[in-house]
């Protein structure tokens, strides 16, 4: 099965300038945006699932990236969201640096393999420095999507 991250990320789930500076507020901003665009049915439950994960692990993976994620039935299908923060958000990354590129992934509980594959693909994609640089410079959601499409394998 070939999973394409770009197929699960919609332009309306992309926030080019995140306002929040703190982790829980940043998650709320992402979730609220997804609720507003009807990608998530139960925003409160979804946010609780994400916060629970954040307490157990550092989803800030270093190099200015955070990938908060959760499996929860608050979502109906595998979904992705993206936010960019100029100031950075403290996601307790192991390198101590704030996260500027924040990708959120969620899937229903019964879609574990898709969820794991999406996390793996995204992590591999974001290890590429040139992709991180392009995402930092992108000027609109369509450009973000094109960068992902061009660089995912």
């Amino acid at each position: 099965m070939v999973l394409k991250i770009s197929e699960f990320l919609r332009p309306e789930a992309i926030i080019m300038q995140m306002k929040s500076r703190e982790k829980i507020a940043a998650l709320k901003e992402l979730v609220d945006n997804m609720v507003a665009h009807e990608a998530v049915e139960n925003g409160e439950e979804f946010q609780k699932a994400l916060a629970k994960r954040e307490n157990l692990e550092s989803t800030g993976i270093g190099d200015g990236i955070a990938i908060p994620h959760a499996r929860t039935d608050a979502v109906k299908d595998l979904i992705l969201a993206f936010a960019r923060s100029a100031e950075g958000v403290d996601f307790s990354a192991i390198d101590g640096k704030p996260s500027h590129l924040i990708f959120l992934i969620a899937s229903p509980i019964n879609k574990k393999s898709e969820y794991i594959m999406a996390l793996a693909k995204l992590s591999r994609l974001l290890r590429k420095q040139e992709v991180r640089q392009l995402l930092k410079k992108a000027s609109n959601p369509e450009e973000v999507l094109n960068i992902i499409k061009k660089n995912e394998e």
Partner: peptide, 26 residues
């Protein structure tokens, strides 16, 4: 690398159920 990331996230999923703090690295 792809298999590695998948394995890391599978472990994280198991560790999460057991209430263990994890940090993943490749």
């Amino acid at each position: 690398e792809d298999e590695g990331w998948q394995l890391l996230y599978l472990i994280e999923d198991d560790a999460d159920k057991a209430g263990i703090w994890t940090s993943l690295h490749l």
